[in-house]
Computed example of a mutant assay.
Amino acid sequence: MLKEYLNSFGLLSDKEIDLFTELGIQKQLNKGDYFIQEGETCKSVAFVISGLLRSFYFSNKEEDITYCITFPNHFMTAYSSFITQQPTNENIEAITTVDLLLFPQEKIQELEQNHPNWTKFLKVIAEQQYIELEKRIFQLQKNDALYRYTELIQKQPEYIQEVPLKYLASYLGITQRHLSRLRKEISF
């Protein structure tokens, strides 16, 4: 799974991919376990093999706001904290049992220093994350909830049923009641 994902970018040799995958540390999170909590400093990047994670923060009203859901076959981290090595403002929690491969920051830095293709790869990943963030902002500001919900269903149909309604509603920027109405409009 990870090798196919890395290969899809066309930037890394088989040797570089093998070297990276050997660095991965397997970890399992149970539902409700945290990858990281607010106030901690992020020291690794994870590749999600299976399961679902949500990234959230607490508003000034102490509301729990889900702003990202990470699906299998994606990298995940508390990116700002990982880069700056400052405590994070976010929480990343397992929605289901999650199998991860963890890659410590120092090992990624070693790869980057010793293999120029890793610098290119990390740049592409950072650019993709920026584009996804920009799309998310535009989608929340430009499109209605029905559009956002149907797009999510189209992109992740096999996993969407595993996300609790309260997290899904928060991610979509709507109430659970509104989400229930949308779900009735759309047949699965």
Rank of each mutant, 00 (worst) to 15 (best):
H115W: 10
P164V: 04
V45C: 09
S8N: 05
F121Q: 06
A46H: 06
R136K: 15
S180E: 01
K107L: 08
Q113R: 11
L182M: 00
I108H: 05
Y147I: 04
L146C: 04
G32K: 14
K15T: 13
H115C: 13
C68K: 14
Q128D: 05
I92W: 06
P87G: 10
N91E: 03
L6F: 02
T175F: 08
N91K: 12
A94S: 06
P157E: 01
Q85D: 04
G32C: 12
D18I: 04
A126I: 03
I92F: 12
R148A: 02
T66M: 11
L140C: 03
V45R: 03
E106H: 15
L146Q: 00
N89W: 14
L111N: 01
Q128T: 03
G39F: 10
F47R: 01
S80K: 13
Y79A: 08
L100R: 10
T150L: 11
L182E: 02
Q37F: 04
Q156C: 11
K135L: 12
L19W: 00
N117Q: 06
L102Q: 02
S180V: 03
M76T: 04
E112T: 14
M1N: 07
T119G: 12
K184Y: 00
N89I: 14
L101S: 00
Y79D: 00
E4I: 09
Q109F: 12
S180G: 13
N91P: 00
L165Q: 06
F47A: 04
Y34Q: 10
E16I: 07
S80M: 11
H178A: 13
S13R: 13
R183P: 11
Q86C: 08
M1R: 01
F35M: 10
R54T: 06
T88S: 15
R181C: 01
Y171H: 13
G32L: 13
K27L: 07
L182Y: 03
F20G: 06
I160L: 07
V45I: 09
I92N: 08
E127R: 12
E162L: 15
Q129Y: 09
A94K: 09
L182A: 02
I83C: 10
T70L: 04
I108D: 00
I160S: 01
D18W: 01
K15D: 06
D33V: 12
T66E: 03
K155V: 01
N60V: 09
Q86W: 05
Q28S: 11
K61P: 03
S44Q: 13
L122H: 09
R54M: 03
P164Y: 06
Q105L: 15
L6V: 01
F35Y: 10
L53H: 01
H74E: 11
Y57I: 15
T66W: 07
M1S: 09
R183S: 06
E132I: 01
L19R: 11
T77A: 12
E132C: 08
E16Q: 13
D64R: 15
L133M: 14
F56K: 07
L6C: 05
G24Q: 07
L102H: 00
L11K: 05
P116R: 14
R181F: 10
Q85W: 09
C68T: 09
C42V: 02
T41I: 15
Q161K: 14
F58R: 12
S50V: 03
Q28G: 00
